[in-house]
Each structure stands twice: as structure tokens, then as C-alpha cells.
Design a protein around this nucleic acid. Structure first.
Lengths: 164, 164
DNA sequence: ATATTGCGGATATTATATATCCGTAATAGA
DNA sequence: TCTATTACGGATATATAATATCCGCAATAT
């Protein structure tokens, strides 16, 4: 079971956007530089965040991204689902219908018991991610960073971000 | 995020093995026929269950598989981890070390905050799967199946399974 | 006007999942 | 002892998905 890199990259991007002064923007290029990943691909993932309204984008010369709402109101599940979608990780192929003792369609009104258990487990996973706000992620990151690094980041933002 | 088909197939295989009379065996070929999947591939997945001791295998003429322990003591996580391994689904690439404001190695003693949250979420997922025993899965399947189908399954087992 | 930036679609490339095959060892039964 | 059957491990092929890039278009500030 795997989570794509797009989730990691957009999560870090959002954590950075959360540090921007109100109304400031960072371009996709700048985000990619900050987290050290290929810019065209990150741009593609950011589009997914934009489509579902996690970030707002502005095209043009001084354009870029900013969070569309307060970091308190953005969860890791919001980001994950935007990038990867909401399809169940366990893909039931209706094995119970196959083979010499396969069930009839009429016996399959309820979802397959095995698939149902995986679905339940995935729901608790999603709820766990949904309980984590971007705010708390940013706080935890800040806790690990020494003052010097926080200053470097602030300075970099000041020279890189553009005002609306 | 995806779970491989091997998990679905081996889970159904185990649910079938749980119905065997004590000491009886089903060959990989028979399992594949029952659940309607390609036999060589299922065989490969069953080897993973055999390696970690979820099932016991016997080579040779009247060989096959049976559960290695009581169905109460086998969880969906046992099966999933045997087939897919235990690597974290969120693969942290240490983004925080990259870019113009990258953290120093000395600042990365603790795991990245983002990766840590995904790890926590995955832990609750695994615990949820680990709380589901093969016994309860079999019970739920039986609940959905009408008597006629249960009888067909019993009859098929009687003609197909071999005694130790 | 022009340069910059995000968007969507199309495409290339790489990695992973899916599926098969083969030689070997073990076992039951003739 | 010989033969047929079955599981095992490794190697390999194929299909599918993830990763990465590119291009034309629209929007925007200067």
C-alpha cells in the first residue's frame, strides 16, 4: 500500500504557504525550489489542490498560490484526497461471485464481508488524517526547527513571495 | 493508495481453508479454482502465507494447504502484512533536508512531522485490521450466504479436499 | 504589448503490480 | 524403487500505474 509522492510534496507546500503573510503568494516555481522537487510535476499536483479549493491561484506576472482558507480548516485528509482521490484502497473484485460455488447476484446485496472490513479500516485511517490540521503540522515542524532555520525561512519568504 | 489483489485472494483462500475439517488440505490449484483466479499467481501469494506461518503446506501427491493455527488467531493484518510487507505507505523522502532552507542532519533527529502523522494514521489502520479475526470474517460471510450455497460449498470441499 | 504564471491535455518515462514459467525438493502410492 | 503430484524459490515476461515533462491557451501585472 503506497501513498504517492504528490501527497508528500503538496503537504510540504501547504505547510510553507501557511507561513505566508496574509495575501502573499508563492509561485509553483518557488514552491518547487523550496522543497527541492521537479517544478513541472509539483505544478501538476498543486492544480489538484486548486481545483478542490484548498489553495487559491492567481495567474500572471506576480501570480502564484496561497491557502484558500485558514490552516485550521485544512486537514491532511483534505490534501491527500485532493491529490489521490477517494477510491477505496481495497479493490473488491467480487471473488465471491466466481468459481464453482460462486454466489448469485441476489445473494450479494451487501458488500463482500472481506471488502467491508478493509473499508472500515480505511475509514479510521481517513478519519485519523482528517483530525490533523495544517496548523498542528506547522506547529510540529516549527518545534523541531531551531531559531536560525526559522529565520532563514522567513527571510526566504520575504525575498520570494509576492504581494497580491 | 492501493492494496494488491494478492491480499484479496489470500484472504478469501484463508476463509475457505477455515471451513476445512481438521487436518484436511486443499491444493493451490483447488483454491484458485474455487475463487476463480489464475492458479500460478495465487500459488505465489500462498507461499508468502506459508513463509510466515499462517498456513502449513505439504508437498507431494495428496499435498496442499491448511491453516497453521486456529482461525481466531489469524487477523486480516496477519494476511495483509504477509503478502504486502510492513513498509510504511507514506514514503518520507526527507523533503525538509532539501532546498535553500533545508534542515541540517542534526535537526532531523525526530521523524518529519508530516511523515509522523501519516505513520500514526497507518497504525490505526493496521490495528483495525488486526482486530478482525478470520473467524469473524467467516461468520460474516456465512451470514450473507443462503443455506443452499453453504451446502454446495461443503459438498465441494468434501469432493476436493484431501486428508492428511 | 509583453513577459510571466497557472491550467488542462497529451505524452514520455520509469517503477510497480500482475502473471507465468521452470528446475528442484518432497511426498504418496504403485 | 519408480512415478506422478504438489509446493517452493528464482527468474522472467507483461500490464498497469506512478512519475515526470511538454505544449498551447488564458489570465494578469507592468
Amino acid at each position: 500500500m503506497k501513498v504517492g509522492k504528490g501527497v508528500e510534496w503538496t503537504a510540504h507546500s501547504c505547510a510553507l504557504l501557511a507561513l505566508l503573510p496574509s495575501g502573499a503568494l508563492l509561485s509553483g516555481e518557488a514552491l518547487a525550489e523550496f522543497i527541492g522537487v521537479p517544478s513541472p510535476y509539483l505544478a501538476k499536483q498543486m492544480q489538484a489542490l486548486s481545483r478542490v479549493g484548498i489553495v487559491l491561484s492567481k495567474p500572471g506576472v506576480a501570480g502564484g498560490y496561497r491557502l484558500a482558507r485558514d490552516a485550521d480548516e485544512i486537514s491532511l485528509w483534505d490534501i491527500t484526497s485532493a491529490v489521490e482521490g477517494t477510491a477505496p484502497s481495497f479493490r473488491c473484485t467480487e471473488v465471491r461471485r466466481q468459481g464453482p460455488c460462486g454466489a448469485l447476484a441476489s445473494e450479494c446485496a451487501r458488500p463482500c464481508a472481506i471488502a467491508a472490513e478493509f473499508q472500515k479500516a480505511e475509514t479510521v485511517y481517513r478519519e485519523a488524517l482528517d483530525a490533523i490540521s495544517l496548523t498542528s503540522v506547522v506547529a510540529n515542524i516549527a518545534e523541531d526547527a531551531p531559531l536560525a532555520r526559522k529565520r532563514r525561512i522567513t527571510a526566504w519568504i520575504n525575498t520570494t513571495a509576492t504581494k497580491r
